[in-house]
Design a protein around this nucleic acid. Structure first.
Lengths: 208, 208
DNA sequence: CTCATCTTGAGAGTTCTCTCTCAAGATGAG
DNA sequence: CTCATCTTGAGAGAGAACTCTCAAGATGAG
């Protein structure tokens, strides 16, 4: 029954696991495509099932709610590489200096799987075009902010409730969120570039 | 049939209109209370109707969808006073200086109706605790950002697509949005204070 | 090939949102 | 008081999300 306790992670497990993973992915891809084409509400789970050539009940087996078809599995997946890069910065660097470096490095690594990253980007992009889905990711956003506050606080040797710490976090996450939101309504989305500019502005401010 | 074309606005119209307005408000109040107490999904329209001592069909007559029970009627209602204050600033002031003044004045006026303002605040506060509702206000947020970009661009004599203009707008709106979001998960919400601090930081940046 | 295991399909059923209609009730105008 | 106008209740019903179950099908292990 437990022949493959060794290979637990996604890439390859028992044959059943892999089949499940593949099916799950297929369903989700079709769902996202349909949501994009027709809108979230206008798309029924039945349609998704039909597109994936499955029965509706099967879709519900994989995704308990329609909602889950589009929520990111891992709350912190968006910022995890960035967190790592930030923590690797030499401790003598200030928060904003470390931030600056982290941003540069976090977007250079080829990452674990490029395809996953692209998929994630696609989904992230879609998130913003579907209000219902965006809402679902608000929790994720709040979590990210908490994590980042603590990261900054630690480096600055302050409490994570420090007004200044909270301020930077708010403006940083806020700026990125608004950029992301803006990408939904037309514009193209160069998150790394905006991130870099935001960090720069956090240090110097504007002169307008 | 049209005896009172003179008094068109909300305060007092034909007796029927006033009754309608009152009923509408009653329903909405009960709905928001229940949503807050039990959560949005856990609350059925039937419960709302019962609380307001009305038939479900009547509730649907006033609010075509459950959703509408909580969406803000006016997209720009949150920032309208601020917009006015900003535009009234002398033209020789820079964007950030005008912003600074506008913020101070916009929150001093007693406003048209204090009660309305409080109601609005309550609803705004509730918005953030109900993801489904938050989503509904994303459009409003995008609109606000567009309006503000144009406001800033005009004063700066630049295009509203200018990177710097976009940058300030993002960081300003983003900061406020994150503050609002944060208020949902525990903290108290002193939006004016945070707004003032944000504007200050937009000029000076942080030194961390 | 055969068996044990896991996945799938089909369909009945529940709940909730939302629509529609019509008779009954409430209310202001004369 | 009476009438015209508007609001409400009750209920029937559609559509979709979601649950559950069991038989049938697919697949890897021996």
């Amino acid at each position: 029954m437990e022949m493959s306790a060794l290979s637990e992670n996604g890439a390859s497990g028992s044959p059943w696991e892999r089949k499940r993973a593949r099916t799950r992915q297929t369903i989700q891809r079709h769902a996202l495509r349909l949501f994009e084409e027709q809108g979230y509400h206008a798309t029924t789970v039945e349609q998704v099932a039909a597109a994936a050539d499955l029965a509706p009940s099967t879709v519900f087996r994989y995704f308990p709610t329609k909602h889950d078809l589009v929520v990111l599995d891992d709350e912190l997946i968006m910022i995890r590489p960035f967190i790592a890069a930030f923590q690797e910065q030499p401790p003598e660097l200030g928060v904003l200096a470390a931030l600056h470096n982290a941003v540069r490095t976090a977007f250079d690594d080829t990452g674990a799987s490029r395809q996953d990253h692209v998929d994630m980007q696609d989904r992230a992009r879609l998130v913003v075009t579907i209000p219902e889905v965006w809402a679902a990711n608000m929790n994720s956003l709040a979590t990210s902010m908490r994590v980042m506050s603590e990261l900054f606080a630690e480096r600055a040797g302050r409490d994570s409730t420090d007004p200044e710490i909270r301020g930077v976090t708010r403006m940083l996450c806020g700026s990125m969120t608004m950029a992301w939101l803006g990408a939904g309504s037309g514009g193209e989305l160069d998150l790394p570039a905006i991130l870099e500019e935001t960090v720069a502005r956090l240090r110097t401010g504007f002169d307008l």
